[in-house]
Nucleic acid binder design. Sequence first.
DNA 1: CGTGTAAGGAATTCTGACACG
DNA 2: CGTGTAAGGAATTCTGACACG
Lengths: 103, 103
Amino acid sequence: MWISLPSSYKDKKVISIGIASELTGLSERQIRYYEERKLIFPERSKGGTRKYSFGDIERLVDIANKMEDGMQTFEIRREEMKKSSVRNKMLRGQINAAFKMRE
Amino acid sequence: MWISLPSSYKDKKVISIGIASELTGLSERQIRYYEERKLIFPERSKGGTRKYSFGDIERLVDIANKMEDGMQTFEIRREEMKKSSVRNKMLRGQINAAFKMRE
DNA sequence: CGTGTAAGGAATTCTGACACG
DNA sequence: CGTGTAAGGAATTCTGACACG
């Protein structure tokens, strides 16, 4: 199975926290807290304001659902780390495969 | 030929003017002026701040190119109106076709 | 633990105007 | 015509803290 790296609009960090709040239904307080708990990683402007991508918005909605299900932040983080771990392994596999093809 | 109505990320108005300025390389002054000249149509937050979509960003870049080519704002607007006129005709055509199919 | 809130300050954006050309 | 800028004000966002539970 092949894994691709996403790009373009979905991953451009251009959304302020106020808009993110409207889009997700979460309070700004909640969104900042999830960042504190390492569940979300916005970029910052020079002035320090947070900037989110549509991908981040999707992740926030996902987080909101899991919180509703009674999951705690550390559990959600653990789950995400597992996923990215698997993803990294697959990417390494692809890179190795690419190198082999060059031989 | 079939025309489709776009949707999702590309058309959600979520980008503030500061980010729009960074993304396009245009000054905020320029972006506001093009709105005054009816070339771009951002939404507004309750408080009155402008919100642009990625589609708007593309349009701004397009406008910037045409301005560089020496085109004037009213010419660009005229050009856009022609395009949307053609598009509307085609959409009406589709709607008519759909109605005929139901008969 | 997760979230609300008041507090004070800083960054961002807004409008109308004057300037230049 | 198209754009820069200084001006004053309003909207937005930031952080650290206290509160509740």
